[in-house]
Amino acid sequence: MRARSALSILALAAAACALPGVASAHLNASGMGPIYDGIVHFGLSPEDSLPVAALGLYAGLRGQAHSRLVLGVLPLAWIAGGGLAMAGAGLPAVALSAVTAALFLAIGGLLAANAELAPRLVAAAAAALGVTRGLADLAGVAPSLPHTGALIGMSACVFALFALAASLTLPLTRLWMIIAVRVGGSWLAATGLLLAGWIWRYGARAV
């Protein structure tokens, strides 16, 4: 009986924690400044952080040339996409959602397969991811210093997360470790499939 009561209390507590207190569209207002708002937004957006982490793990497996090139391209592409969005450019919500889902699945698949791609092709995929998510994150906002600061915060998170993920796989030489990372990539691809279905179903609100 005590065990059942404890489980019931835990279930109620978990349900209470899952209830949102505030719903925010696009950028989250943290009250700690625009740069921190961008950091919070990136951290609370799995459609942003998961493909960046997967791309970092993949680039690390492929070597230093891939990692260094993508480390420079990805944050700059994110800034470019956000700048285009603030300038009024953009894609229809459904198209943007479809591109995001396709990139998520492609990056997860590349990691799972450990595909041998040239650095420039990986950089092109990184540029596509950065521009797409930058457009999505800043869609519908007006040019302003706070929004620019939020974009800087996001791009800093992109840089840091990619560098951390790549540093985890770059020194790996043992086969079983590489296989473990690739298995993780397959799970990321599966998560991407679920996320793709969610974005496709609720695309207009997801981005």
Rank of each mutant, 00 (worst) to 15 (best):
G31T: 08
F159D: 00
L111C: 12
P143N: 10
T191F: 14
P46G: 10
A196T: 04
Y58E: 01
G38W: 04
H66I: 07
A6D: 15
S67Q: 11
L12H: 11
T173F: 00
V99Q: 09
S97C: 01
I79C: 12
L138E: 03
A11S: 13
L194M: 12
L44N: 12
A196I: 04
F159C: 13
V207L: 13
A166L: 06
A113C: 10
L10E: 14
A166Q: 04
I199M: 15
A150G: 09
L76Y: 12
M154C: 14
L111G: 11
A95H: 03
G38Y: 04
M177R: 14
T132Y: 02
L50I: 15
G83L: 04
I79K: 00
A127V: 07
P34W: 04
Y202C: 09
P171T: 11
G197W: 14
L96F: 03
R201M: 14
P171M: 11
R174Q: 04
A204N: 05
I107M: 03
G153V: 10
S5W: 12
P51K: 01
I179A: 14
L151P: 10
L129K: 10
L7Y: 01
V52S: 10
W176L: 08
M154G: 14
L19H: 12
L175H: 13
S49F: 11
L161S: 09
G184M: 03
G140S: 02
L74R: 04
V94H: 11
R4D: 15
A150H: 03
A163C: 12
A189H: 04
A196G: 13
G130S: 06
L57R: 01
G90H: 08
G203H: 02
S45A: 08
A102Y: 09
G81S: 01
T169L: 04
G38R: 00
S49K: 06
A125T: 12
P146Q: 06
L193C: 11
G33C: 07
F159P: 00
L161M: 14
L188I: 09
M177E: 13
I199N: 13
D48H: 11
S45I: 00
P119C: 08
G88S: 11
L50V: 15
L19K: 06
L188F: 04
L105F: 06
T100A: 14
S30V: 08
T148R: 13
L168S: 01
A206N: 07
S155H: 12
G33M: 07
L50S: 08
G197H: 11
P20Q: 06
L188Y: 01
G56K: 05
V94C: 05
L164N: 01
G153L: 10
A180N: 09
A15K: 02
L12K: 07
A54I: 00
V183W: 06
A23H: 14
